[in-house]
């Protein structure tokens, strides 16, 4: 097993060859913000929050998919990166209908936490106020598209961990949205096993337990990690 040595934020860090910059940083206790990244499923590099500066490269690289390399010099937290990250969070707030005050995930939301982390005390971009629906047709879970950030974590846990691929993305661009089966009410899905992994995977209040009231929805990420380890490594 080859070990690589690199510097992250001026700290010397060693990492296994197959690890990503994000893995290495986390092991070293260096925080890099993420949203679409979810431990236990594949990375898509879509949210761009984990972009870092790599010395010698003009392009910013997403830490979640960038493999470590010997002698790499990484900066994770420059003013420029922080500024970009704040805009990303602003973009998400402007895009959907994220009304924290009346959201089931208020206080337990990765988007809200990111806003706090980025110092986002207001949104400079134009709010879109899309007209989106809530699906409560499932016996146990609900889906509020207003709060969906299109991170595809639900799609990936469903496909990669549960293996039924109930969820997918439909539409394109700003019209993108997640669907179950043929864009039908979740409760009528024939593929859904009601395993609830998508609920735990969701970073916001978009997917929730039925009956959740405001601020009550808590996602159990540890459960996803546990199941992923059990499935993939046969370790419990």
């Amino acid at each position: 097993m080859a070990v690589k040595t690199l510097t992250i934020d001026d700290r010397l860090v060693s990492a296994r060859e197959e690890e990503t910059v994000l893995d290495a940083a986390r092991e070293a206790g260096i925080h890099i913000p993420t949203l679409c990244y979810l431990e236990g499923v594949s990375e898509v590099g879509a949210c761009r929050l984990c972009l870092v500066e790599v010395a010698g490269s003009s392009k910013l690289q997403p830490a979640c998919v960038t493999k470590v390399a010997e002698g790499m010099e990484i900066q994770t937290n420059t003013d420029r990166l922080q500024n970009y990250r704040r805009i990303i969070v602003e973009m998400l707030f402007a895009e959907g209908n994220h009304v924290c005050s009346v959201c089931v995930a208020n206080g337990n939301c990765e988007l809200q936490d990111l806003a706090i982390e980025m110092g986002m005390d207001h949104v400079r971009l134009e709010y879109q106020f899309p007209d989106r629906q809530v699906d409560l047709s499932h016996d146990r879970f609900g889906m509020d598209h207003n709060r969906c950030v299109l991170c595809t974590r639900c799609v990936r846990v469903c496909d990669e961990l549960e293996g039924v691929h109930t969820w997918d993305m439909a539409g394109r661009g700003s019209q993108s949205h997640v669907i179950t089966d043929l864009n039908q009410p979740w409760g009528t899905s024939q593929t859904c096993t009601s395993c609830g992994k998508c609920v735990e995977a969701c970073p916001t209040g978009a997917i929730f337990h039925q009956g959740s009231s405001v601020g009550e929805m808590v996602h159990d990420r540890a459960r996803i990690e546990f199941i992923a380890t059990a499935r993939q490594k046969q370790q419990w």
């Binding site: 009304v99 005050s101 009346v102 207001h122 709010y127 106020f129 899309p130 007209d131």
Partner: peptide, 18 residues
Amino acid sequence: SFGDCAVTGNVTALRNSL
């Protein structure tokens, strides 16, 4: 800007999607 309605529109702006 004092409170979420002033800062974000918040619940007062919920009618906007109509």
